[in-house]
Design a binder for these strands. Sequence first.
RNA 1: GGGUUGUUAGCUCAGUUGGCUAGAGCAUCUCGUUUACACCGAGAGGGCCGGGGGUUCGAGUCCCUCACAACCCACCA
Length: 859
Amino acid sequence: MKLPKAYEPSSYEPQIYALWETSGAFASTGQGEPYSIVMPPPNANGNLHVGHAYMIPIEDILIRYHRMQGRDTIWIPGADHAGFETWVVFEKALEKEGKSRFDFSREQLYKMTWNFVEQNRGSMELQLRALGASCDWSRLVFTLDKKVVNIVYDTFKKLWDDKLIYRGERLVNYCTKHQTSFADIEVEYREEKTPLYYMKYGPFELATTRPETKFGDTAVAVHPGDKRYEKYVSQTVTVEGVNGPFEVQVVADEMVDPNFGTGVVKITPAHSFDDWEVAQRHNLPMKVVIDREGRMTEATGRFAGMTVMDARKAVVKALEEKDLLVKVDKGYKTRIGHCYKCDTVIEPLPMKQWFLSVKPLAVRAKQAIEQGDIKFIPTQKGKELARYFDELKDWNISRQIPWGIPIPAFQNENDPDDWIFDTQVDQEKITVDGKKYKRDDDTFDTWFSSGQWPFITTDYLQSGDLSRFYPNSVMETGTDLLRPWVARMIMLGLYCTDKIPFDDVFFHGLILDERGQKMSKSKGNVINPMEVIGEFGSDALRIGIVMNRSAGQAQAFSTASVIAGRNFCNKLWNIARFIENVAGEEGQSVKTLLEVNPQTPTEHWVLQRLDQARIRLDDHIANYRFAEAVETIYHFIWDDVADWFVEASKAAAGHGKLSARPEFLNHVLGLCLRLAHPFAPFVTEAIWTITHEDDSLLISQPWPDPQPFDKEKAAEFDQIRGLVSEIRYVVTELPASKKYDLIYRDDTLIADQTDLIKSLANLGSITKVDQVRGLRVATAGREAWLDLSAELVYDHQIKLERRLADTRAEITKLEQRLSNKNYTAKAPASLVEESRTQLEEKKELETRLVTELNVISTK
RNA sequence: GGGUUGUUAGCUCAGUUGGCUAGAGCAUCUCGUUUACACCGAGAGGGCCGGGGGUUCGAGUCCCUCACAACCCACCA
């Protein structure tokens, strides 16, 4: 088949992907050393974003590369039920229909959400295909699949039996709109202006931003060293309040800043995280005054039923009326937590939750990190994580949304403290040993189940056929998931399997918009990867996003780089077109890929370059330097293959000479496609399948072996390149209307490669002469002259003079360096030797330049 | 307040354990329609490597310090 003139990604990519998928190329082979990646599961019913457009190519590069290396490779895709995110979307859809979650039972809600997800599912899977993800779709795991739930229950049971699960009342970040608690990391804090009210408070005066919580006060705290209030500590004082007098204890606690406000703090254990801590330390009672709807409770008397904000106004007014308000600082600023979805102010509320005692798990995880059992890229992330394990608090694993894995626990109807583990979560009530139990309606925190992802997806605990892929070779994820996810995978992985879940962790940074701003819907600066693919192609996006980017750094998206990627694909395409044409003219077919040994210097040279590129790619990929790897393949293909090798092959192509042997061109093309395939899978595969008449696929080809080339021969071509570059440099400055001639004497390389040099340097002729004239091609160090008129030579004089000055400056520098005894004594011998050689070369060049200038001036 | 990262060409970024004249892409300038490619070719220009100090024969790279930016954690009653 013939290659069409231009590469149109959109007309090849879908078919190419379908070819791969139907051929079974994505499946593990069962042969060789296992190499595995488990994909961080994208939201099942969402769309991919640019973050995925970075994550997927990286993982795909690793997978394709190792697959070609002959490893037994698997990339397991996943789909996330995305507990909270999906829930919000679903609830909005419900609201549109004029319904609410309160109209349905939990079972109904779960089923409805399931159907909702099913309906909206599929787009992210299509988008993964558009990105070229060579993952094994037959292994796709959904985070609510039965097997996931079963393992999560086993883990919960194991933790339960190990007494690491407990029911505790804790202050939680509670969103009164979503009726759910949040992990600390899910709360968005913002600095805001909020009035600071100074009020009379028994014998004290104190400041608070939340006067409405006054009814929940059970103490006041002062700093232990604060002389002003020393005498009150441990006393009970009577406070006149808006609802009449009440009593509180006075405690001394370090958390109080004696310099802030009046140095006195009212303690409301039920509605403030700090106060909660103080209450724990001093055994203080707790009084709840705000309910889950965000309204004041009966305990607040006449304020009951008011919203928090209304109550605040009403209480302030009441304080004023009772002359208890001293002053108001209206300019006070503080950080207030908001629900990251609906922006409602987060209320700290005490609630019964399931907790996991993380200490024993964290200690083990930290130890593993400190022993270096896991390789982190970038390295600092490991240290960050080790510190995090020190300060990790017990993990609240309950969530109050129906869309998730139900917690398999039941409560005795007659004894609230009697909880049993049971997996019959489809039953609202069960009877065990004659006692009636009621199901807990909470679901697990998403991270509790996804924290087990590496061994769930590989069926490790079930010794399934994928268990050889655990631990995973590498976990590739975003820096933002270091704590919520990676930390948990390590803890739970060690706890459940006694193994670290992955050998390496690679963190990719956030992708910012073109101006370095964080992307957000509200800013309207979100880049849709599918649009980029539509415009430039999938390979272009992959290359553009991987190049100019390093691990763990938040960096801007760059359309220019995507364009570079597109151009690269086009370059590859056209190299293939050229080779196809030559092969066609010569009657050669590309059907078979035979090993073809190099003959000419050009051929030796290109194999040398190819080998060097291969070695560098191996090294870059082994060290997760993807941007450098892309740069390596880009420049090898463009500079070495297109600009030198292909150009050089033209010199002989028209002469029926063998230096442009079509079979060798084909051979090189095949090697290039293989090297480039992990980075630009679509275009390389398109070229492969079009130029090969058999039904082989590039995706399944082996990575190139070391190449047979002769260094000496390759060096000859380097000599030619030097000469050609020099000629081009000189000729560029000359009038462009005509071709120039080269003359030489006693130069076998030039004699042997006349056609090549003539073609590459675009010369009129190359002739051997006895008497030279014109301008010597000075820097290349060959016996060659450009046959120029005296005027042209004279015009070039200035350039030569400048070059001479530069050369002399370099000589001075080198001489200074070498005359420094400290340098010659302390620097490595090889380096000093290098400097010496360099000096020699520069001096030779100087001599040639001087001679040439003398010749010019005497003319 | 604590921590992390960053500050290199007009823009976006590389620069691996300190070592040759600090690189790339895009952009800019000059020349060029040589039948693979104008999504091209040949060539060029452009950098007090954020400021200051130090260690070293040698610093973009290590140390100190300052400035600015981003992010994370904690705290702010």
